[in-house]
Design a protein around this nucleic acid. Structure first.
Lengths: 185, 185
DNA sequence: TTAAACTTTCAGAAATTACTGAAAGTTCAA
DNA sequence: TTGAACTTTCAGTAATTTCTGAAAGTTTAA
């Protein structure tokens, strides 16, 4: 199977990007190709389109499945497996964030918690533990926030976006109200 | 220079994480160590603390400088250079996001724009270009949104966070108002 | 100017990661 | 039950990335 030259550029570019996002180059390429293909592709089509070995495709597919990014299907009277990308672009982004959270952020939070629980055992550790606490708090905040955003549809998100600088204005109003309530002098 | 065992765990863990975030292991370790060190460290201290070569430290420092993550300083009567991490934890996170945006998202957007500008040259490209457009739009939205958030202080962000599920409620109210205005039947 | 005290560079070596292809495994129709 | 049509596995190899250490470069004090 050959790919058109524009689609090639796309696929190769996302191969490079993939390698900065937790996949290797060929897995990135495989996924990119599935994303822009209207119909599901077979393993052999992937292998020939990307000039990689059949074995490599098999490993890549396994990896993409572990990220929950692709779907299997079959056509009647054909024993081959057909692969396609799951969901909208927004879903894909969410899935990748979610998966990376599980693989990277969660273990980090749990390490930080356990180190902080022990407490500083000498002077050099006091400063260090403060920083660890900051990192912990920031990561926790980001994860919660991300969970919040993921619940929004892209349309809602885009509305929120268009609020634009309004978000910070809204916040400052809220803060003023809040401080007045608490400290009405 | 030796590191305490808890600080070791931290440094090694962030070495591993670093390698998933665009640095290599030792660069991640160097940065982690600088972050939890109260006082600036010399290149030799970094090398001995992490058991890596002096040359490696030199390259790592260069890399961290290109990410704008560390700062140089000097002590009077000493010709060595002293390195320390720049800014708060929130600043660090912003810097890393910002730098990755420049290195990854921007080139991707520009590739997508140029492919989309050419337009589809055959049937298989029509579907592909739709997907590319979706990815383009999503990336653009995320970048703008991120820029918006970066302008907020961590305190403001945390206020926004505490709004929690409120954000989506607020949005649905806004949407209802908006749709009534536009289509009052 | 010299030389001591430092930093950077970079060729080659080491470590890590990715890929191939042949063999083993699975499934199913006949 | 056999074998054709497929998929998976994995040992060995290839490609890539990272690291070392020696040499070259820079700066400053005397």
């Amino acid at each position: 199977m050959e790919i058109s030259s524009k689609n090639q550029s796309f696929v190769y570019h996302f191969g490079e990007m993939g390698s900065k996002w937790g996949f290797n180059r060929t897995v990135g390429q495989m996924y990119a190709l599935l994303v822009i293909s209207e119909k599901p592709l077979t393993a052999n089509q992937l292998a020939s389109a990307l000039s990689i070995s059949r074995g490599n495709v098999s490993m890549g597919v396994k990896e993409l499945q572990s990220w929950q990014l692709i779907q299997l299907s079959h056509v009647p009277g054909d024993r081959k497996e057909y692969y396609s990308a799951i969901g909208s672009v927004w879903d894909m982004a969410n899935t990748v964030f979610e998966e990376r959270r599980k693989r990277e952020v969660d273990p980090t939070l749990s390490l930080l918690r356990s180190l902080l629980l022990e407490g500083p055992s000498d002077d050099t550790e006091v400063y260090a533990q403060n920083k660890m606490q900051d990192i912990h708090d920031l990561l926790e905040m980001i994860t919660q926030w991300a969970a919040e955003l993921q619940r929004l549809s892209p349309e809602q998100l885009s509305t929120l976006m268009k609020l634009g600088a309004g978000v910070s204005k809204m916040l400052s109003v809220k803060e003023q109200l809040f401080s007045k309530k608490k400290d009405p002098k």
